Amino acid sequence: MYKEPVKNFNKIRGYIREFYINGFKSRQDYTIKSSRSYDNEKRRIESYMSDYIDYHITPSGKVPYLSIDTRITQHNPLYRVWKTKSFTDHDIILHFLILDLLHTPLSMSELMDKIDEKTNHIYLYDESTLRKKLKEYVREGVIITNKKGKKNFYQLSEDYIISHDILDFFSEVSPCGVIGSYILDKQEKEESVFGFKHHYLTQVLESEVLYDLLNAIHEHKYVSLKTSRNRIKVLPLSIFVSVQDGRQYLVAYICQSKKMYSFRLDHIISIKCLEEEKNFDLYRKQLEEMKKHLWGVSLSNGSLETVEFTLHHEPWEEHIYRRLLREKRCGHVERLNENTSRFYAEVYDVKEMVPWIRTFICRIQSISISNKEIENQFKKDLEEMYRYYEVEEDDIS
């Protein structure tokens, strides 16, 4: 039977990503799950995101899609999918009973007795269930605990107010910003003072994965990563975020192959924490050394490749030289003369640099890449471009 709330966030996460990034597929085109699953998830998303649903007409009928203009969107609408978790009657009643009763300190037995009184013994919670719930709320900071003699006493923590603007900014730009969105929901609505040129909305779908990875890094623990292809044991070391598209990556040490590797967070389904690594700092130090030769996130096969090119710029084009200095990352820039500059870098994956190098095509005088396959492909692409424009030029004349 269809129900709007969901128990497993990964279920809706996959559909949101598929529909937002690729657009809704028709019922016939979507083959990952059954037709009934497609219908249920489509109805959920249409309910959560009704303000952002649009349609286009195809030969097979009207197909909906998510349309979000990040230039005018002040609050990430994808946070809505985090606020749809299902719960049982017992869960929600116990939650509010705890909040209601712990305005004064109570021991476990005292709390159990008062819950029984409040519910007229209709809802029976065993001590184990209550203990787990209290332990969770202590961990989350909802309640505090004090020991008196041999007994623990529980009480609600004090409320504190965080500035609306701080929460507003945090919720849109910080990792796991969904936390700020939850707190904002409890404050009076105010107009946002922020606008974003680059607003990477889909990062919110990886919040749970990111949170688990950050905890593992903080605690120096191995994790078992489950992806759509396999499950693998790694030691998480760092999180990288692309400033171009907002995509998030985990850089980790793979135990089986004994190599560093990067994983896209949107390809990770779930994470299970394992044992602690006593020599964690040694692996982090190794990564810090490797970062000196990282252009992006790719470590390729672990071997360094070199790239070198010279650029021509006119005397009035000093901004080209300054751009080289600004964007060189791990590379080196040398001014050969007034009109010529040289760029040199040793990186793990030259292929990551090719899009950037292409932006200087009309100025490149010479280029040399140690990976000859990439160099030959780069030059071949240039030759095809020249041929293309020569043909166009002949047609025009």
Rank of each mutant, 00 (worst) to 15 (best):
M1Y: 08
K3M: 11
P5A: 12
I16Q: 02
S26A: 01
Q28E: 12
D29K: 14
Y30M: 06
I45C: 00
Y48F: 09
M49C: 10
D69E: 09
R71Y: 13
Q74H: 09
H75P: 06
V81Y: 04
V81M: 11
K85Y: 15
F96R: 01
S109A: 12
M112R: 06
N120Q: 14
I122S: 06
Y125I: 00
D126Q: 08
S128G: 09
R131S: 11
R131M: 07
R139L: 10
E140C: 05
V142E: 09
I144K: 08
K147W: 01
K151S: 07
F153E: 12
F153C: 06
L156V: 02
Y160G: 14
F169Y: 12
C176W: 00
I179Q: 03
H199N: 15
E206G: 05
L210M: 14
L214T: 02
L214W: 00
K221P: 02
L237P: 00
D245I: 01
A252M: 04
R264S: 12
C273R: 07
V297S: 03
S300G: 10
L325M: 14
E327Y: 09
R329A: 07
C330T: 13
V333K: 06
E334L: 11
E338A: 13
R342S: 10
A345G: 01
I361W: 05
C362R: 04
S366P: 01
S368A: 13
E375M: 08
E390A: 04
V391E: 07
E393F: 13
